[in-house]
């Protein structure tokens, strides 16, 4: 802790109220200290500066751009240490005038589960656990009672005769019960409608998992393991950056892709073209046409969660 950083912190503090003063002081100090002590391995492989910076890292929505930049470089250093690879942690803001929506053609889903594995690869999900954002349910035709679904179908070939397939993932509810549940505001809905997580703010109480009516939230019961060569280095702060044990995570409509104009990985992977993604505020978008012209349904509409994920049929 050099005297000058202390002074910086103090200067900063005068304009802020007490809470921010506390946070910012520590943030600035640790960001500078990180440069000084980066070479000393301690604190679980971290430098003291990084350890302090991580501990006192503020809530994403409350950080200044400089604090976010410090956090981002800390996260990148951490990934380098863990995986020996350089990753880029993006922080692309929501696009003005865009609210994302998803539509899925159940007549076209054949249960191949290609979306599931593409999602695991794209989003750096911990391998060897149950960490999968998409669950494809196999149902008897004519029966949409989810309690009758087969989650672990393992046929030699799908689609099976007389069966239909229903992929379930985060519905990005417009009135998300998980957001309401979180005691510390670690999850919220972004202006583009994506319900995101601040993995560094979650305290791991798992109340959001109880609140979610779609089993869309998943927990890191242990340190997630990803083979270093399979790590997707193109990441987003609120999306697929590497996570740690003891925090909840969820589908975020591939925020690292979609905010750059790309389509979600599950959509790209789908071999039957069952998935449609787009801007709900654009009246000319495909998804709006589907909502206006096809018979659509949403899961558990009666719960009032207002999912932004629709199912339709041919």
């Amino acid at each position: 802790m050099s005297p000058s950083t202390k002074k910086d912190a103090a200067d900063q503090a005068q304009v802020d109220h007490s809470r921010r003063r506390f946070m910012k002081g520590v943030g600035t100090v640790s960001a500078t200290a990180a440069g000084v002590t980066a070479l000393k391995p301690a604190w679980g492989g971290m430098s003291l500066g990084d350890a302090l910076g991580e501990f006192f890292q503020d809530h994403y929505q409350r950080m200044s751009p400089e604090e976010i930049a410090a956090a981002v470089s800390r996260i990148e250093r951490k990934a380098k240490r863990k995986f020996g690879r350089d990753i880029q942690v993006g922080n692309a803001p929501p696009i003005e005038g865009v609210v994302f929506g998803y539509a899925l053609n159940i007549s076209k889903c054949k249960g191949y589960r290609d979306c599931v594995s593409a999602c695991v690869q794209e989003n750096n999900l911990g391998r060897g656990g149950q960490m999968e954002y998409i669950r494809v349910l196999e149902l008897d035709k004519g029966d949409r009672n989810l309690d009758h679904a087969n989650h672990y179908y393992d046929h030699m070939a799908v689609p099976q005769e007389g069966k239909e397939y229903l992929p379930v993932q985060c519905m990005q509810c417009d009135d998300p019960p998980c957001v309401k549940a979180c005691p510390v505001d670690a999850t919220w809905m972004e202006p583009d409608g994506i319900v995101v997580m601040d993995y560094d703010w979650c305290i791991g109480c798992r109340y959001c998992m109880s609140a979610c009516p779609y089993s869309a939230r998943h927990f890191n019961w242990r340190e997630p393991e990803i083979p270093a060569d399979e790590l997707n280095s193109d990441t987003h702060y609120l999306g697929n950056r590497p996570r740690v044990k003891g925090v909840v995570e969820k589908c975020h409509f591939c925020i690292q892709r979609t905010r750059k104009g790309l389509q979600p990985a599950c959509l790209e992977a789908c071999p039957t073209g069952a998935r449609v993604f787009g801007n709900l505020l654009d009246p000319d978008s495909e998804i709006r046409w589907i909502l206006a012209n096809k018979t659509v349904l949403r899961l558990k509409e009666d719960l009032g969660t207002e999912p932004k994920f629709w199912y339709y049929t041919d």
């Binding site: 506390f22 957001v179 309401k180 549940a181 979180c182 005691p183 510390v184 505001d185 109340y207």
Partner: peptide, 12 residues
């Protein structure tokens, strides 16, 4: 105040 407390929404 130091942290973030989701009142009055969160029952927890």
């Amino acid at each position: 105040f130091i942290g973030k407390f989701n009142l009055p929404e969160s029952l927890l």
